Amino acid sequence: MRIATAKQTYLADEALFDTRTQRTWLALLAASLATFPFVADAYWLYLACLVAINVASATGLNILTGYTGLVSLGQAAFMGLGAYTVAVMELRLGTPVLVNLLGGGAVAMAGGLLVGIPSLRVKGLYLAISTIAASFIAHFIFANWEFTGGTTGLQVPPARVLGVDLDTSFKIYWLIVPVTALMVLGAANLFRTRIGRAFIAIRDRDISAEVLGIRLLRYKLLSFGLSSFYAGVAGGLWAYFFRVVTPESFPLIMSIFFLAAIIVGGMGSILGSILGAIFMTMVPELLKLIVGWLPVGGDALRLISPVRTIVFGLLIVGFLIFEPHGLAEIWRRVRRFFHLWPFRT
Rank of each mutant, 00 (worst) to 15 (best):
E90M: 11
E90I: 11
E90K: 13
L91H: 12
L91S: 13
L91A: 15
R92F: 14
R92V: 12
R92C: 09
L93A: 15
L93Q: 09
L93G: 07
L93M: 12
G94F: 01
G94T: 02
T95V: 13
T95A: 09
P96C: 04
P96T: 07
P96W: 10
P96V: 07
P96N: 06
P96Y: 07
P96L: 05
L98I: 15
L98Y: 15
L98W: 15
V99K: 09
V99R: 06
N100C: 15
N100G: 14
L101K: 09
L101M: 10
L101T: 10
L101F: 08
L101E: 12
L102R: 07
L102E: 04
G103V: 08
G103D: 05
G104P: 08
G105S: 09
G105E: 10
G105A: 11
A106K: 05
A106V: 14
A106H: 02
A106C: 08
V107T: 09
V107Y: 02
M109N: 03
M109T: 03
M109I: 02
M109R: 03
A110C: 03
A110P: 00
A110H: 00
A110S: 05
A110L: 05
G111F: 05
G111E: 08
G111C: 07
G111R: 08
G112D: 03
G112M: 02
G112A: 01
L113V: 06
L113C: 01
L113F: 01
L114E: 04
L114Q: 05
L114W: 04
L114P: 02
L114H: 01
V115L: 13
V115N: 04
G116D: 06
I117E: 05
I117Q: 07
I117H: 06
I117T: 05
P118H: 14
P118A: 10
S119Y: 11
S119R: 13
S119L: 12
L120C: 07
L120I: 13
L120D: 09
L120Y: 10
L120W: 08
L120Q: 11
R121W: 08
R121Y: 08
V122K: 12
V122Q: 13
K123V: 11
K123Q: 14
K123W: 06
G124Y: 14
L125I: 15
Y126S: 12
Y126F: 10
L127M: 15
A128V: 09
A128T: 10
I129R: 07
S130T: 15
S130Y: 04
S130G: 06
T131I: 01
T131H: 02
I132C: 02
I132F: 08
I132V: 14
A133R: 00
A133N: 04
A133V: 03
A133H: 01
A133G: 10
A133L: 01
A133F: 01
A133D: 04
A134N: 04
S135F: 02
F136I: 11
F136A: 10
F136T: 12
I137C: 02
I137Q: 00
H139E: 07
H139K: 04
H139I: 03
H139V: 01
F140E: 07
F140D: 05
F140C: 05
I141Y: 00
F142V: 01
F142G: 00
F142I: 00
F142M: 08
F142L: 03
A143H: 03
A143M: 04
A143G: 06
A143F: 02
